[in-house]
Design a binder for these strands. Structure first.
Lengths: 160, 160
DNA sequence: GATATTAAGTCAGTAATATTGACTCATCGG
DNA sequence: CCGATGAGTCAATATTACTGACTTAATATC
């Protein structure tokens, strides 16, 4: 058996397809009950998450992360603003920009949703162990696009 | 710093949220161009994948894996059958069942879609290394539901 | 300073994926 | 025979997303 690493076997990659499908399905699903109670969807959660992780992010930058159109984000964002979860403020340098931040209720909601996902992810991390978690990160990081990798590296330098 | 493992830090879990979002987004996206050319969507890909991995699967079992309703699957499945990608045959023991299999063109299409994802996943595996891949699997396996874990373990026993 | 570009928002129409609810039909199991 | 099950169908609706066309305000460029 020569090629153990140069050319990952089909079965290995088939397993990865299954793993990603189920893990992503159940991880995202973890917050759904809390979202439903508020009449919100996963799109709202994604917006809350990335605004929370990037206080003061511009609409254009958020669109680039989510990879959706302006019209699609508008629906989600206007609901979040109407409900008082997200605040907009004009950019200081460029007043055309609307810098997005979570309000206090918005941060609390995002935290609640995060906690539901934490219930699933925390035990998984503990069970798998630090070494496995490191491998988990390395593989996921290698799967994504360059631009996403750049984002990850900028936001999660070792230490924080 | 006492709790290094018992209670994974927020920042660790925040990173995981980002990693899962971007990796899943780009991994699933890899097959989109090929799907678009045929006027098919991701839902068709998922059905093709799980029928391909489970030849002779019943409709009920497929619904359980995909976690969608019968009506939602019907749209996707009838299109795949109409186009000759999926064949249905009555169960031998229970003739109410419609056992689903990929036709030869269906298997070829599924393979093409798989190849697009392989282009993304294969290099990621090679770069990250065998140890990282093992950790990747362990963490994803721990994230998913019991039923999904059972599925994974049944389909991917070590050896194949 | 006029002009082009950019950031953001909006209106309209449509598509893909999914849902709930209410049925039908054939077959299986007791 | 009869209730339960596997599968399919019709209808209406929700969520998330899209393309295309425009407007407004502010910045950048010539």
């Amino acid at each position: 058996m020569p090629d153990s690493k140069a050319d990952p076997a089909d079965t290995d990659l088939r397993l990865a397809q299954d793993l990603l499908f189920f893990a992503y399905r159940d991880f995202t699903n973890a917050a759904d009950v809390a979202l439903d109670e508020l009449g919100l969807g996963r799109a709202h959660h994604r917006a809350l998450h990335f605004i929370g992780r990037n206080p003061g992010i511009t609409v254009t930058d958020l669109l680039g992360i989510l990879r959706i159109t302006k019209q699609s984000l508008a629906r989600v964002l206007s609901e979040l603003v109407d409900r008082g979860y997200v605040a907009q403020s004009p950019g200081r340098a460029d007043r055309r920009q609307r810098l997005l931040t979570l309000t206090e209720p918005g941060a609390a909601l995002e935290r609640r949703l995060f906690d539901r996902q934490r219930e699933r992810l925390g035990p998984a991390y503990s069970e798998a162990g630090a070494s496995a978690v490191d491998g988990f990160r390395r593989v996921l990081r290698a799967i994504m696009d360059d631009s996403a990798r750049t984002y990850i590296d900028a936001h999660h330098r070792r230490g924080s």
